[in-house]
Structure formats: structure tokens, C-alpha cells
Write a protein that binds this DNA or RNA. Structure first.
Length: 809
RNA sequence: GCCGAAGUGGCGGAAUAGGCAGACGCAAGGGACUUAAAAUCCCUCGGUUGCAAGACCGUAUCGGUUCGAGUCCGAUCUCCGGCACCA
């Protein structure tokens, strides 16, 4: 078969017939199937794109054949750093390269023969889109979910620029390899932490990979504990957060983060110089290093003492860089006897170590003892278990207002400003009189200017565009400056799935009623690397927009699948430097896009991925040719055999069990086993053909037709062509996906295994109508089974219907 | 260090819900067709042992539960992914 020719032929036909046009009138039975949109990088579509999009499209086709109105859009995540970095290297403007790449990729995606309805395309770098990204920013601001504060960011001293977290690899700049340092800048944040609890609770109801849910759960990191107030002798007070309030009697010091606002105030004059020097030093250490567990603990005494509220004991106040200002209260209590870090710290600085918990069974345990146990040396709390004491001690403090139960999250607010050019401008104007003023909605979009020098020099590139920067304050009319930062690209991708169904809307980001009908996405397919970024942000946006009244559902993606990674033939990740990159274009040229897609579905477990094999793709080509010859046989066959005998019954059984398992496997993204079942059906049809070379029963041709229909989602052009060759005049995608005939699946006899003492000794055909006792009697009445038992005493018989009988002697 | 997932033939990978391990494919071997080769069609294909029927072993390792374990439980080893001073 001339693959190239038939691909062109059917793609043209589909296009002319608008075969995959989405019909909004039919949304009652819709399926929203969505693949994570792609980044329009310079290179062409790689195997990874195909692996994401090919099998997913087959799933969409499968749903379409089952009668659903499938909404299957495609678009581009077009803002972002790679285009900008490429521009810095080559001088080609990001806008030019991006939109050129999009054209190329659109063409390539069309060549896949996928069912995308391009009418619904979304491009995030298009002002028709980012206008609404900016609008959402303003809504978040209005709702108190966007705010500005000073925060440390990743700074590359060599590139003279801020880097996104994703650009920091093991503490180094991804581009030049320099060590990244921290730098404080005033930044915009989204208050995702307001939704920490709901983001956590909502995971339970989602049909997502457990691993991904767990990653989000750990990322959100909810922990239960108490906040306890310590008062310094000089009068100030501060709170510490602890999950082990039960160890409060064992506190021998307290520690503040170097950035804690009280540090300067409570440090005694004689310690001031040393403390200031320590604080300055920690500022120089880069974040990665500071947070490294391998680093030796260091700290410094402030000269101040605080009172432990439970026993009135005076304990020294330290500062140490292992305490994070951004978590909890930025202060912790030190209990060396029951915490490993505190133990090391106490040893180093000669602080007392006093046991307040022992193991419940009283067995000898060394300090630091971090397990749960029973309180000792804790006054009237002695004898309480850890779980009891944690609560009781906080409750005791609560009476004097010195403590309360508290929940903390690891999740931090989302830093969304970027000192970069190629992104959506943040719609804010800074006025000397009115402060940070939101751009009025009627003035959106704030267009990203084209002529900007984006060579990195440590400042936001937009600052250099006077034309962009200088505006009048929308409130008082005084000369003012625009916000020069742009939004993180993850902001753009946090709501694109909401825009797809209503992508032409000029009045709103999307129409509420319409979007409530179309969303949530029924099946979302994309890489696992987005577990704690895009997939979390999109959930946050959905919930925030719901609370603002723009939509009425809680979760954007009901069901999620991660595809695996296709490796090079040598088992390594494909990379130019290893020379193991498989080019989809060349492979397709040689074998056709259907074969390429079919191999991607057959050669791997979809969620695992694995190494590419040239032999593998040849094997699916062989399979397709086998099917093609079968179709030729079916077209030419003499179907006058009227006798519906054992062979026909068997063939029909295999045909129906193939329909059953292929349907189930397609549903579960078990593509490799689905193809295997089709191969089995093909083998059975060959066997039938071999035994009945001259005249065949009509069931042969019917089974071949079903085979073609079952294959259609995987090899669309090929299936259309075969369907036509068998006289079909209607596209396979307008035909109903095969449905099983239950009666064909019930056999008169089933083969079961006969075990003696749990070892298989024989196979036996048993009438399938028999119940358990019937099977026992039938089996024992068979001479060959009786011979195996040979008169021994039968202690027990286990029967598993349709599978086995186990005779215990 | 903590959390999680995985470990099955020469290879890629299958095994609803604890029930015949190795589906399907690749590679390999054999046969048919052919002057020959390719292609195609058919058969064999975990290991040891046996003339054979068969017997024994076998899902990383060790132990356990069970009539029965790749699957469940406990420990160990290896590889991968995530988090990494979160108090």
C-alpha cells in the first residue's frame, strides 16, 4: 500500500467533509479530550510529541466512534524563556521565531492525521489570549489573591539576570553554569496558600495516578502542630511552630531565622556586631547551599533570653540559618533530646540536653530519641503518650493565651513576576501618588512592545522601552510608570483549557454557562513532570475563578494520564550529543504515520515508555500488511459456506472477545495489549482461512470488518482505505465501534486445569453449564483423573469456576 | 536522609479480584513454497534432566500466610522518580 498517497487522500477527504468539526449542539454527550499543549520550540515535532499526541488522538477517535461528541482542541504555550534565550543567542526576535515555529508545528500536527478542530486553537502569546490572562490577574488582585512583596529570587551573577526556578539546575544556572545566588526583589505573588486545604482535600476525588496525587499532597505538606509564644526578658515576644509540643519541657534554647524581624531588636548591644555579621554572611550563601542537609549547622547567640511558657525556665535565644523565615513563624524551639538537628546544634554550642520522652516499653533508647513514646520530666504531663501530650500541653498554654493548635503548609505562595521580556505584561501602573494601580479593564490588553532590547543586564527588559513604561496614572492622571515585569508562563497555561471552547470570545475570557457545560476536561494527557507545577496551578485557578463566580465546577481535570518517555535505541534519553535521536519525519517517510503511531501504541506500556526499536516498527508494518492481505481475502472470498460449525463458532468467539478486550484496554490507555488482541484476532482469521481456503462462512468477512473498525482509531488512514476496499462507502469514523454479542462469548465447554495437591496434572474440557459440585463429579468421573487420584483419600476439593479444580489428597 | 514506584525468558513487554506464569511481538531454530534468494504461510521456542511419557526448578534475595502467591505480609538488595534542615 502506498502510505503517503492514502494519507494525503484521506486527510483531504476529512478536511473537505469537515469530518472532525466539533458540534456545540451535541454537547450533551460530549467528551473533552485534551493533551497538554506544546511549546513551539525551534525544532520539529519529536518522538515525545508524537507519543503524547498520537495515542491520545486514537483515544479521541475511539470515543468518537462510540458516539460521543468529542472536543479535541490544540494550541500553543507560546510565551517563555527558550524563545527569549534563542533570541539572545541569534538575534532573532522571539515573536518572529515563535510564530514561525507555530506555523511549522501546525503543519506537522495536521500531518499526524489527528482529529483536532483547529477552529478552537489557542496561542498564549497572542494578545487576543493574553488580554484575558491579564484580566484574570486583575480579578485575582480584586479578590485579594494577588499581592506584592519583597522576596528572594534566583540570580545568576554571570548572565546578570533573574532565573526561573526551572532554570536552576542543582544550584547552577542552566545556561552558563554559574552558581545561582539569592537576591531580594519586590515581586508579585498569587495566594495559592489560601487554597492549600481544598487543593489537598480535592485530590481524593480525582481519577489521577496515585503517584501524582501523592506528589501534590507532599508538596502541599500539611502538618498539624502548635504555635507557642515565648517572651523575651526585655519584653518582646515571638511564636514558634512545632509539631512536637509534647517535648516543650525539653527546650534548652530557641532559634530565630536570620531574617526574623525581631532579631535586631532583641540582640544585646555586646552581641550586636557579631550577630549583624552573621546575618550578612547568610545573605551571601546561596539558597541551595543554605538549605542543604549536608552543610554543618551554624548559629549565633543573640545575648537575649526567653521564658519557656510551660515551666518558666530561662533559655538562650539564637539565630541560625537552618531556620527558614518563610515557614511557620520563622522561629523554632530547640529540643536536643528529641530532634536530630537540635541535638547536633546543642552539642556544637554546649547547650543542655534533657530527656522528656521515653519509649513506651521502657527499652533502652539513646538520645536523640525522635520516636513517639511517653512523657517524663514533664511535671504533671508525665505518663501521657506523645499524641496526648501534644494536645494537652498546648491546651494548657491556651488558658493563658500562650499557645494554640495550628496547621501549617509547606506550600508557598506562587511567585509570578519574571524580569523577562517574552511574557504577558503585568497590568499594573505605578503612580507616585496612588501607588500600584491596576490597569482599567477597558484598557486591556497591555500590549507587549515589539522593539525592545532584551539583552540581559539584570533589569527587566521592558524598563528600557520608554514608550511602554511612561503612562498617565489612570486614577489621578499624573505621570506614572508601567510595571516592567512579565508573568510567569505557567500563568498563561493555568487557564487555556477554559479558553478553548470559547476561543473567539471578544467580550469575556469565556462564557460561564457555556464553559460549565464543556468543562471539566474528561481526559487529560501529558507529562508527569508537571505534577507540582502546571497541574497544581490549574487547579488553583479553577477554584479561584469558581469562588469569584465565573464557573461552577471544582476541578479542571477529572481524569489524568501521564505518558512515559521514549528513549533512544541505546536506552538513554534521546539527545543530540549522544546521537541517539530518532526522527519521526524520517520514520514516517519510510513507514507512514499510521505505522509510526501503531508502533508507539504497541511497543511500550503507555505510561512507562521505553527504548525505541527499529525492529519494533518493522513488526507493526508486517502486521498491517497481514491485515491488508486479510482484507483482500475477505473482498475476494466465496462466502457460500452455510454450515456454522465448531470452527465458525470459535472464530466468532475470538472476534467477540477481541472486541471486549480491545474496548476495555482502549478505555484504560492499555494500548499495547489492545494491539496484541487485534493480532490474536488476525492470527485466528489466518488459521480459519488456512482451513477453509475455498469457501468460507460469512462470519469470516464480518470479523475482518470488525478488525478494521477496531483498528481504525490506531491506524486511521489505513482503516479508511481497507474499509473502502471492502466496499464501504461511509467513513469508518462515522460507523459504530463494534459491540460484543454476549451469546458468542458463552462456550459449551471450557478447558480447566486439574491440580492434584496444587500442582497442575491435567487439562480437562468441562461443560460450562456445570456448577461447582457438577464440576467435581464430572472431573472425578473421568478415567484419567481417577487414575491420578488412584484411590487415595480425598481431603478437600477446591473449584474455581471456569479456571481450575484442585484435589487435595 | 524521607516519601513513592518498580525488579518477570536472549529482548520489548502480558497476566480483572490470590487460581494453568511468560499473552502479543522481536530475535533464534525447523518445515512448506521457490531453480535460488527475498517475501509469504505453518511449526518449535524459560531452565535442568530423561529415549520417552514425564520429573524437578523458575517472576531480584530470604522468610511467612494460603489448598494455591508474580500478585498479600515481614525483612534485605538493586535501579528509577519526587522531596530535601518544613521544626
Amino acid at each position: 500500500m502506498d502510505y503517503k498517497k492514502i494519507e494525503k487522500k484521506w486527510q483531504k477527504k476529512w478536511k473537505d467533509e469537515k469530518a472532525y468539526k466539533f458540534d456545540p449542539e451535541k454537547v450533551g454527550e460530549k467528551k473533552y479530550v485534551l493533551e497538554m499543549f506544546s511549546y513551539p520550540s525551534g525544532a520539529k515535532l519529536h518522538v515525545g510529541h508524537w507519543y503524547n499526541y498520537g495515542p491520545s488522538d486514537s483515544y479521541a477517535r475511539f470515543k468518537r466512534m462510540q458516539g460521543y461528541e468529542v472536543f479535541h482542541p490544540m494550541g500553543f504555550d507560546a510565551f517563555g524563556l527558550p524563545a527569549e534565550n534563542y533570541a539572545i543567542k541569534t538575534g532573532i526576535h522571539p515573536k518572529d521565531s515563535t510564530f514561525k515555529n507555530i506555523k511549522t508545528m501546525e503543519k506537522q500536527l495536521k500531518a499526524i492525521g489527528a482529529t483536532y478542530d483547529w477552529n478552537y486553537e489557542v496561542i498564549t502569546a497572542d494578545s487576543k489570549y493574553y488580554r484575558w490572562t491579564q484580566w484574570i490577574f486583575l480579578q485575582l488582585l480584586k479578590a485579594g489573591l494577588a499581592y506584592r512583596k519583597e522576596a528572594p529570587v534566583n540570580w545568576c551573577p554571570s548572565c546578570q539576570t533573574v532565573l526561573a526556578n526551572e532554570q536552576v539546575k542543582d544550584g547552577d544556572c542552566e545556561r552558563c553554569g554559574s552558581v545561582v545566588v539569592r537576591k531580594n526583589l519586590t515581586q508579585w505573588f498569587f495566594k495559592i496558600t489560601d487554597y492549600a486545604d481544598e487543593l489537598l482535600a480535592g485530590l481524593d476525588g480525582l481519577d489521577w495516578p496515585e503517584k501524582t496525587k501523592l506528589m501534590q499532597k507532599n508538596w502541599i505538606g500539611k502538618s498539624y502542630g502548635g504555635e507557642i509564644e515565648f517572651t523575651v526578658l526585655t519584653g518582646q515576644s515571638f511564636k514558634v511552630f512545632t509539631t512536637r509540643a509534647d517535648t516543650l519541657f525539653g527546650v534548652s534554647y530557641v532559634v530565630l531565622a536570620p531574617e526574623h524581624p525581631l532579631v535586631a531588636k532583641l540582640t544585646t548591644p555586646d552581641r550586636a556586631a557579631a550577630v549583624a555579621a552573621y546575618v550578612a554572611d547568610t545573605g551571601k550563601v546561596n539558597e541551595i547551599e543554605r538549605l542543604s542537609t549536608a552543610r554543618e549547622k551554624s548559629g549565633i547567640f543573640t545575648g537575649a533570653y526567653a521564658i519557656n511558657p510551660i515551666n518558666g525556665r530561662k533559655v538562650p535565644v539564637y539565630i541560625a540559618d537552618y531556620v527558614l523565615a518563610s515557614y511557620g513563624t520563622g522561629a523554632v524551639m530547640g529540643v536536643p533530646s528529641h530532634d536530630e538537628r537540635d541535638f547536633i546544634f546543642a552539642k556544637k554550642y554546649g547547650l543542655p540536653i534533657e530527656r522528656v520522652v521515653k519509649s513506651a516499653d521502657g527499652s533502652a533508647d539513646e538520645l536523640p530519641y525522635v520516636e513517639y513514646g511517653v512523657n517524663v520530666n514533664s511535671g504533671r504531663f508525665d505518663g501521657l503518650t506523645t499524641d496526648e501530650a501534644k494536645i494537652a500541653i498546648v491546651q494548657e498554654l491556651q488558658k493563658n493565651g500562650k499557645g494554640e493548635l495550628k496547621t501549617n503548609y509547606r506550600l508557598r505562595d506562587w511567585l509570578v513576576s519574571r524580569q523577562r521580556y517574552w511574557g504577558a505584561p503585568i497590568p499594573i501602573i505605578h503612580c507616585p501618588h496612588c501607588g500600584a494601580v491596576p490597569v482599567p479593564e477597558k484598557d486591556l490588553p497591555v500590549l507587549l512592545p515589539y522593539n525592545v532590547d532584551f539583552t540581559p543586564d539584570g533589569k527587566s527588559p521592558l524598563l528600557k522601552s520608554d514608550e511602554f513604561m511612561n503612562v498617565k496614572c489612570p486614577v489621578c492622571g499624573a505621570p506614572a510608570k508601567r510595571e516592567p515585569d512579565t508573568l510567569d508562563t505557567f500563568v498563561c497555561s493555568s487557564w487555556y483549557f477554559l479558553r478553548y471552547p470559547d476561543n473567539k470570545n471578544k467580550k469575556k475570557a469565556f462564557d460561564g454557562d457555556w464553559i460549565n457545560k464543556m468543562l471539566p476536561v474528561d481526559k487529560y494527557i501529558g507529562g508527569a513532570e508537571h505534577a507540582c507545577m502546571h497541574l497544581l496551578y490549574a487547579r488553583f485557578f479553577t477554584k479561584a475563578l469558581r469562588d469569584m463566580g465565573y464557573l461552577n465546577f471544582d476541578e479542571p481535570f477529572l481524569s489524568l494520564v501521564h505518558q512515559g518517555l521514549i528513549l533512544g535505541p541505546d536506552g538513554n534519553k534521546m539527545s543530540k550529543s549522544l546521537g541517539n535521536v530518532v526522527s519521526p519525519d524520517e520514520t514516517i517517510k519510510k513507514y507512514g504515520s499510521d505505522a509510526f503511531r501503531l508502533y508507539l501504541m504497541f511497543g511500550f506500556s503507555y505510561i512507562e515508555g521505553g527504548p525505541w526499536s527499529d525492529k519494533g516498527i518493522e513488526s507493526v508494518v508486517r502486521f498491517m500488511e497481514r491485515v491488508e492481505r486479510l482484507a483482500q481475502k475477505a473482498a475476494a472470498a466465496d462466502l457460500s459456506k452455510s454450515d456454522y460449525g465448531k470452527e465458525e463458532k470459535e472464530l466468532n468467539y475470538i472476534r467477540n472477545s477481541a472486541i471486549k478486550s480491545v474496548t476495555r484496554d482502549m478505555e484504560a490507555f492499555g494500548f499495547n495489549t489492545a494491539v496484541a488482541r487485534l493480532m490474536e484476532l488476525t492470527n485466528a482469521l489466518y488459521a480459519y482461512d488456512n482451513r477453509n481456503p475455498d469457501i468460507k462462512h460469512a462470519v469470516f468477512k464480518a470479523a475482518v470488518k470488525d478488525l478494521i473498525l477496531l483498528m481504525a482509531p490506531m491506524t486511521p488512514h489505513f482503516a479508511e482505505e481497507l474499509n473502502e476496499s471492502l466496499g464501504g462507502t461511509v467513513s469508518v469514523f462515522k460507523q459504530r465501534y463494534p459491540v460484543i454479542d454476549e451469546s458468542a462469548l458463552t462456550l459449551d465447554e471450557v478447558e480447566i486445569a486439574v491440580q492434584i495437591n496444587s500442582r497442575v496434572k491435567a487439562k480437562l474440557n468441562v461443560p460450562s453449564a456445570l456448577d461447582e459440585n457438577g464440576v467435581k463429579e464430572f472431573a472425578l468421573s473421568q478415567p484419567q483423573i481417577a487414575a491420578l487420584v488412584s484411590g487415595a483419600e480425598i481431603k478437600k476439593i477446591v473449584v474455581v469456576p471456569k479456571r481450575l479444580i484442585n484435589i487435595i489428597l
